[in-house]
C-alpha cells in the first residue's frame, strides 16, 4: 500500500511543479513585449504621463521577479490584480464567468460521458460490422469539423429554420434551472457532439486493445459468455485507459468551450479571454490562461492518479 501512496504523492508533486512552471511561463511571456504592458495597452498615441500613471497603477516599476511572486501569491487566494483597461479587479470580470463556463462544460459532460462510453463499448463489441463502419465515418466527421461549423449548423436548423432553441445564450441570475438548460442547450449540444465522437473512438480503441490479451482468450475458452467477457474480464482492466479518455475530453471541453462561447455569445470565461486578447488587457489574459491551464493540469493529474489506483498490480503489491 505504501508504494501506491508514494506513487500518487510523486504524481501530485509533479503536477504541482508543472503548474508552477506554467505560471512562470504565463507571467514572463508578457515580458517578451517590446516596451512594457502600459505602452502596449495604451498604444503609441499615449502621452508619457498616462503611460506612467498606468505603470504606477500596475506597479510595473518594480522588478519582474517581485511582481511575479506577488502575482502568484495573489492568484492562490483568488486575487489576480486589476484589469489594465477598466481598472477593476480581474476577479470581478472573470469570477462569475468561470462559474458559467464550468456549468456549460458540466452540462455537456453529464450527457456526453456516459453516452460516449456506452457507445464506445457497443461499437467495440460490434467491431468491423456495418454499424461500426458507419459510426467510424460519423465520428471522424464530427471530430474534423471546427466547433463553429457545428455550432452554426445547429443554429441554422434548430433555431432559425425550426425555432426550438435560442441562438444566443444570454443568462440572468433569476432563471429557473429548466430555463437555463433550455437556453444553453445549443452550445452544450455542440460540445457534446465533438466530445462524444472523441471519447467513443478512444474507448473503442482501448477495449479492442485489451480484447487481444491472452486472458481474454482464456476467458472465452472457459465458456464465459461474450457480455461477461467484456464486463468482467475486459472492463476491470480498461478503467485506466477509460479514465484517461474521460479526463482528456473534460480538459478538451474546458478549452473547446472558448469557440463555442463566442459562437453563442455565452457569458463565459472564454469570451472574456478573447475580449481581453483583442483589447490587450494582459492581466485578464494572464489570469484566464492560468485558470484554464490549472484546470487542464488538474484533470490530467486526476486521470493519472485514477490510473494508478485502478491498476491491480499496484494496488496489490507482492
Amino acid at each position: 500500500m505504501n508504494d501506491l501512496l508514494l506513487l500518487v504523492l510523486k504524481r501530485l508533486g509533479f503536477g504541482l511543479l508543472t503548474l508552477l512552471v506554467v505560471s512562470i511561463l504565463i507571467f514572463f511571456a508578457v515580458e517578451l513585449l517590446p516596451g512594457d504592458v502600459a505602452e502596449a495597452v495604451l498604444g503609441q498615441g499615449a502621452t508619457p504621463e498616462t503611460v506612467q500613471a498606468m505603470r504606477d497603477q500596475l506597479g510595473l516599476d518594480r522588478p519582474a521577479v517581485v511582481r511575479y511572486l506577488e502575482w502568484l501569491g495573489g492568484a492562490v487566494t483568488g486575487d489576480f490584480g486589476v484589469s489594465a483597461v477598466s481598472g477593476e479587479p480581474v476577479i470581478n470580470a472573470i469570477g462569475d464567468r468561470f462559474v458559467n463556463t464550468l456549468f456549460l462544460a458540466a452540462y455537456a459532460a453529464v450527457i456526453a460521458v456516459p453516452f460516449a462510453i456506452l457507445l464506445g463499448i457497443v461499437v467495440a463489441l460490434l467491431r468491423n460490422s456495418v454499424f461500426d463502419r458507419v459510426a467510424n465515418v460519423l465520428t471522424l466527421t464530427s471530430i474534423s469539423s471546427p466547433e463553429f461549423f457545428l455550432g452554426y449548423i445547429l443554429i441554422l436548423y434548430l433555431s432559425v429554420k425550426l425555432p426550438l432553441f435560442p441562438a444566443i445564450a444570454s443568462l440572468s441570475s433569476d432563471m429557473s434551472l429548466g430555463e437555463l438548460l433550455h437556453r444553453t442547450f445549443l452550445p452544450a449540444l455542440t460540445l457534446v457532439l465533438v466530445v462524444t465522437a472523441h471519447m467513443m473512438r478512444m474507448t473503442r480503441a482501448a477495449i479492442i486493445n485489451l480484447l487481444a490479451s491472452p486472458y481474454i482468450e482464456m476467458a472465452r475458452l472457459k465458456g464465459v459468455p461474450p457480455w461477461k467477457v467484456i464486463v468482467r474480464h475486459a472492463l476491470p482492466n480498461a478503467w485506466a485507459p477509460i479514465i484517461n479518455v474521460v479526463a482528456l475530453n473534460l480538459a478538451y471541453l474546458i478549452t473547446g468551450v472558448v469557440l463555442v462561447e463566442v459562437v453563442f455569445v455565452y457569458p463565459g470565461i472564454g469570451q472574456a479571454l478573447v475580449d481581453a486578447v483583442s483589447k490587450r488587457d494582459f492581466p485578464v489574459v494572464q489570469a484566464s490562461s492560468l485558470i484554464f491551464a490549472a484546470t487542464f493540469i488538474l484533470l490530467n493529474l486526476a486521470a493519472d492518479v485514477g490510473a494508478i489506483i485502478t491498476n491491480p498490480r499496484l494496488r496489490h503489491p507482492k
Binding site: T18, L19, V22, L25, I26, A29, A251, I254, T255, V258, L259, L273, V274, A276, V277, R280, F282, V285, Q286, S288, S289, F292, A293, F296, I297, N300
Partner: peptide, 13 residues
Amino acid sequence: SIPSLIFALLMLS
C-alpha cells in the same frame, strides 16, 4: 499542459 488554443491566444496577444 497548457491548452493549445489558450497558449496560442496568450502568445498572439
